[in-house]
Amino acid sequence: MASATPVVIYPPDQDGGRRVRIDGAIVGRALSVQGVARFMQEAGLQDWDEMDVVRSSLIEWRGGGPDAWAH
């Protein structure tokens, strides 16, 4: 993953899941910050955990921050 490429977390859907876009492609749907961390690890940031996700400036949270998982 290119370090300058943003990650976008979309607003929660009706089930509380949020689409995750990395490098311009939707990589899946996360149900928690832990799920976002797994997608980041799969994208090449193996050492990332939940705290990295919450603190990162690479991630753009739409429709609420890392605490928003309910629709």
Rank of each mutant, 00 (worst) to 15 (best):
I22H: 13
Q14I: 07
D67F: 11
A43G: 09
E50Q: 15
V54A: 10
A43L: 09
M51W: 14
W48L: 10
S57G: 00
V20F: 06
G28C: 11
Q46Y: 06
D49C: 09
D47P: 00
G28N: 08
G44E: 12
D52Q: 11
A25W: 05
G63T: 01
A43R: 07
G65W: 07
I26F: 12
R62P: 00
L58Y: 00
E42N: 13
D52A: 14
G35A: 09
G28R: 01
F39H: 05
M40D: 02
P66T: 02
G64L: 04
D23L: 07
Q34H: 12
G65Q: 05
R21D: 12
D13F: 03
R19L: 09
A25E: 12
G44F: 10
A37L: 06
D52C: 12
D13G: 03
G65D: 09
W69T: 09
W48S: 13
E60A: 05
G64V: 01
R21P: 00
D49H: 13
W48Q: 10
D47Q: 14
E42L: 15
G44A: 09
R38F: 06
D49T: 13
A30K: 01
D49N: 15
L58M: 07
I26E: 03
L45W: 15
L31P: 04
S56W: 05
R55S: 11
Q46I: 13
G63M: 01
D67A: 13
I26N: 02
L58F: 00
A68K: 12
V33L: 15
A25F: 06
V20P: 02
D15G: 07
